[in-house]
């Protein structure tokens, strides 16, 4: 429990640092927001008035504090491009991207763990060569390419979804999920292959350990050695790896959203960067950072439940 609190404190601290650095960086690169909003022909008087209104004349730290307070309370400023509150702009996109990433994550986890066990069992059989080749293929082919193939096959030929025409997530949830499913598969294939490979080698190295010999000496068969001892011991590295996977998925989703025509965060981000819509970009950067830190924290907290050795110092 103490450990969990410590970990959550670390998360908050990291986020404060990240947000500060982000705020600082955007201060440096974005120039004068008043000028950006009014354009170059604005009169000096109007610029001064807007600066006053936006609070740009206050000291840097004060502005940071008020931005942070706004962030926490959901007031993220106004998009320069759309003249809409940033949160209203981001929320529906974030929803879609989260659905995509979570679907992909669930697929990766559900598929890779059984596959890893199978592929371990196939060691030394004719399947092994086939498995290795297939695994490498899955890792090597980039998601945008499988994405193109899948939009063609499932979208255009089989008409299971309409590429580029994403159904509304709230009113046509089922259809939207079908659309997302194929994108999630594309996004998940390379990471699934990596997870399988990583888990397989963890299981193999665990199998060499002395406790396995003890387990066999007690009369456990191969299956029991695996299920009762080795899998649990392999779990912590799998969870750490899956945590990294979860963190990386959101980055990978940008490309996949483009291929499948999904109006998620990725598209908004690309558009906002190209139009220098800094309030939007700034917010997305912080959200992405939060996602990454959250994934790592969750993985650590789960691992600590699995492995009592990690509870040292936090148990009492």
């Amino acid at each position: 429990m103490k450990y969990a609190l410590k970990r959550i404190f670390m998360l908050v601290l990291t986020m404060v640092i990240v947000s500060f650095l982000t705020f600082l960086a955007f201060e440096l690169i974005s120039g004068d927001p008043a000028e950006a909003m009014l354009g170059t022909e604005a009169t000096p008087e109007r610029l001064a008035a807007l600066r006053e209104e936006l609070g740009l004349n206050r000291p840097f730290l004060v502005r940071y504090a008020s931005w942070l307070a706004g962030f926490v309370s959901g007031d993220l400023g106004v998009s320069l491009r759309y003249r809409q509150p940033v949160w209203d702009l981001i929320a529906p996109k974030l929803e879609i991207t989260l659905c995509l990433c979570l679907a992909s994550f669930v697929l990766i986890t559900a598929v890779s763990i059984p596959l890893a066990i199978w592929s371990y069992r196939w060691t030394g059989t004719v399947f092994e060569a086939v498995r290795t080749a297939f695994n490498q293929l899955c890792m090597a082919v980039p998601p945008f390419f499988t994405g193109i193939l899948m939009t063609y096959l499932f979208g255009i030929v089989l008409r299971l979804f309409v590429p580029g025409d994403f159904p509304d997530l709230h009113t046509r949830f089922g259809e939207a999920m079908v659309h997302l499913f194929f994108a999630a598969v594309c996004l998940g294939i390379p990471r699934t292959a990596m997870t399988v490979r990583m888990m397989r080698s963890t299981v193999i190295s665990e199998m060499q350990k002395a406790y396995v010999r003890t387990a066999i000496s007690r009369g456990n068969d191969r299956h029991a050695v695996l299920t009762r001892h080795v899998l649990k011991n392999s779990l912590t590295s799998a969870i750490t790896f899956l945590g990294q996977t979860m963190a990386e998925l959101i980055g990978g989703s940008v490309v996949v959203e483009q291929v499948f025509g999904i109006p998620g965060l990725g598209r908004l981000l690309v558009y906002s960067i190209s139009t220098r819509d800094y309030p939007v970009v700034q917010t997305v950067v912080v959200i992405l950072a939060f996602w990454v830190v959250l994934a790592g924290t969750l993985a650590d907290l789960i691992n600590q439940q699995v492995d009592p050795r990690l509870r040292l110092g936090g148990a009492a």
Partner: peptide
């Protein structure tokens, strides 16, 4: 092997050199 598993543990007990590594750390 299957017959041997009945003998292992039941009729023969084994104790190894390094007790720390011989035990499953998570059980």
């Amino acid at each position: 092997r299957s017959a041997l598993r009945q003998i292992h543990g039941r009729k023969i007990g084994v104790v190894f050199q390094e007790p720390m590594s011989a035990m499953d750390p998570l059980m």
